[in-house]
Design a protein around this nucleic acid. Sequence first.
DNA 1: ATAACTGATACTATATTGGTATCATTAAGC
DNA 2: GCTTAATGATACCAATATAGTATCAGTTAT
Lengths: 136, 136
Amino acid sequence: MKLITKNTDYAIRALMTLASDRDRFFSAKEIAGIQDIPYHYLRSILQILTKNALIKSREGVGGGVKLIASPSRIHVSDLIIMFQGDADPGECLVKGRICSNHQTCVLRHEIKRIERMIQNQFGKITIQTLLNKEKN
Amino acid sequence: MKLITKNTDYAIRALMTLASDRDRFFSAKEIAGIQDIPYHYLRSILQILTKNALIKSREGVGGGVKLIASPSRIHVSDLIIMFQGDADPGECLVKGRICSNHQTCVLRHEIKRIERMIQNQFGKITIQTLLNKEKN
DNA sequence: ATAACTGATACTATATTGGTATCATTAAGC
DNA sequence: GCTTAATGATACCAATATAGTATCAGTTAT
Ligand code: FES
Ligand code: FES
């Protein structure tokens, strides 16, 4: 049961690095080195974080990315949605098309309930709380 | 966030069909028809359920499979483990190998906690409870 | 001018999941 | 006994999702 994919994981770790010094720019190369993340892959992830305004970038020499959102306002649940998409829309299909009892299906109901519970749990975890726990 | 894969889903539904008449044998063909599951795929699923002693099979004309476990003792969590494997052992890797802070990693800790919570939730759902809810 | 960066985008590789096919074996019923 | 309807075992293929790579254009500090 893969709750978090690599890109989400990498995003979290990159953000934690950025949160360690909120005022300066880190280059993708630097973050990749610190966190041991494949450079090109990380770059694509940072671009998504930039588009979502969690970080801002500066091009050219001495450039890189810098945190702009508050670490306590970046919830892991947001990152999951950002990188893994909101809980699959179709879900519980029969041979590609939606099955007849789609609306009433009890199993589906239970799954949806548990999914909400999971999102709720991940919503309580922020970059800040992760950093706090790390220090102990 | 795919909590349940198709094979688990199909297994659940096949078991619900079998639970509707515990005394007789249903052929794979019959179940496939009722639940609209691809025949050959269902067959491979039924073989796994047989090996795990949730159902028993009879070969030859008039054969098929029949429920032997009690519907109230078949937990969805068991089926998830059976078809999707116990929560990935490696998890949270860095470039294939296990990262240095694997033991202490706080994110990993949180994920493990949530995974346990999910298994606990699915542990409360049985074939019987699904059947009960269906009747309402 | 050069070097160190990001933006945009396309591409490839790998893994997982979902599904198909085949042949051997078993058992019922005529 | 022969036929037919079933499962056992197993190998294979297809589709999808995830992970990772590569390239080139544009930007900026020195
Ligand atoms: S069987 Fe289709 S929604 Fe559950
Ligand atoms: S970063 Fe490797 S276990 Fe979390």
